[in-house]
Computed example of a mutant assay.
Amino acid sequence: MPTHDGNWSQGTPCWIDSQVDDTARAREFYGELFGWEIMDSQPDAGGYLMALRHGRPAAGIGPKPDGMPMPSAWTTYFAADSADAIAEKITAAGGSVLMPPFDVLDVGRMFVAADPVGAVFGVWEAKAHSGAGIHNEDGAYCWNELHTGQYKQSQEFYAAVFGWHYTEIGDGENFVYATFALTQDGDPVGGVNDASKTPGDAPSFWLTWFQVDNTDASVAKAAELGASVLMAANDSPFGRMAVLQGPQGEAFGVIVPATP
């Protein structure tokens, strides 16, 4: 069981949470789908719920911020040694800080930003809560990838902010995709997908993938619980995967990875 203790290295996807209109409904849906034990937070945490898998933090579920109209979504958070320093880098690189850095009780310091193409993400400076304590495991997140209409521009932005190094793994024409790592020879920790050829005017966004032990069974169960299927289960070099939309409109992927 892949677990993690302590702070994540800067630039690593370290946490995920969903912002929804009805946290009780999301609690029931994801608890049933992924086998999460979902705990209430302390009274001054604004109704935020903590999802545990095998007793370790796996994800969060929270209400949408007051006065900020937004679709329901899963947000990817990247670890930062200093949230304020990363906020400055984001602005300098052409991104936007949507919610300035602020302290979350004694658990961490965070903010929400958008890259120059409009993809929204979070930044987490750990204190009492270091982020995910379980990953790459059935019922936990295993991959985070950016879908962007401006492939090179997005790569340059995140390299300037987090120092990422990219490895192109697509064919350069029909499938344009790169993994990113924290160092030149480091293990990949996420991906960037060129979505410029996607039909329509789809916005750029970060997609969270959850590992499951049976993709087809998970898709069927999600549908029974009120989800929609955005991409039917199919086999790929990376595993059997599908993309779903939760009952409140939030998109996420499920996959049985071909390799750990």
Score class of each variant (00 low, 15 high):
Gly170Trp: 04
Thr208Tyr: 09
Cys14Val: 11
Tyr48Val: 09
Ile38Glu: 03
Trp36Phe: 07
Glu168Trp: 11
Leu105Cys: 15
Gly170Pro: 06
Gly108Ala: 08
Asn214Asp: 11
Thr183Gln: 08
Trp124Thr: 04
Asp5Asn: 14
Gly95Ala: 11
Val176Trp: 04
Asp103Met: 07
Ala93Leu: 04
Tyr158Asp: 03
Asp21Leu: 15
Val20Ala: 03
Ala222Ser: 08
Gln211Asp: 11
Asp138Ile: 15
Ser204Thr: 10
Ala126Pro: 02
Glu168Lys: 10
Thr23Gly: 00
Ile169His: 04
Gly133Glu: 00
Trp143Thr: 08
Val212Pro: 05
Val176Gly: 05
Gly31Cys: 05
Asp187Gly: 14
Ser72Ala: 15
Asp5Tyr: 13
Val112Met: 14
Asp5Pro: 11
Trp36Ala: 00
Trp15Lys: 01
Leu146Val: 12
Thr215Asn: 04
Arg27His: 07
Met99Lys: 09
Asp115Phe: 05
Met50Tyr: 11
Gly67Gln: 01
Thr179Ala: 11
Val189Ala: 09
Ala217Trp: 03
Met231Thr: 14
Gly172Val: 07
Ser228Glu: 15
Ala59Phe: 01
Tyr177Arg: 02
Gly246His: 04
Gly246Gln: 06
Asp213Leu: 08
Ala45Ser: 12
Ile61Val: 06
Gln211Gly: 10
Gly67Met: 02
Met39Glu: 15
His54Cys: 14
Pro13Ala: 04
Thr179Ile: 13
Asp235Tyr: 05
Asp103Ile: 08
Val189Asp: 05
Leu98Lys: 04
Ala242Lys: 01
Ala24His: 09
Asn136Pro: 14
Gln245Cys: 13
Asp22Trp: 12
Val161Ala: 01
Leu182Lys: 02
Trp36Tyr: 09
His54Pro: 13
Tyr166Gln: 07
Ala217Ser: 09
Glu28Ser: 10
Pro237Leu: 02
Asp17His: 08
Tyr48Gln: 06
Leu230Lys: 15
Glu173Asp: 13
Trp15Met: 02
Tyr158Thr: 01
Ala132Cys: 07
Lys89Thr: 11
Met68Tyr: 10
Arg27Leu: 06
Val120Thr: 06
Ala132Thr: 05
Gly67Ser: 05
Tyr141Arg: 10
Gly55His: 05
Val254Tyr: 02
Pro257Leu: 03
Tyr158Met: 03
Met70Lys: 09
Gly55Val: 03
Lys152Met: 15
Ile134Trp: 00
Ala85Ile: 12
Leu33Ala: 06
Lys197Glu: 15
Val112Leu: 14
Asn144Gly: 10
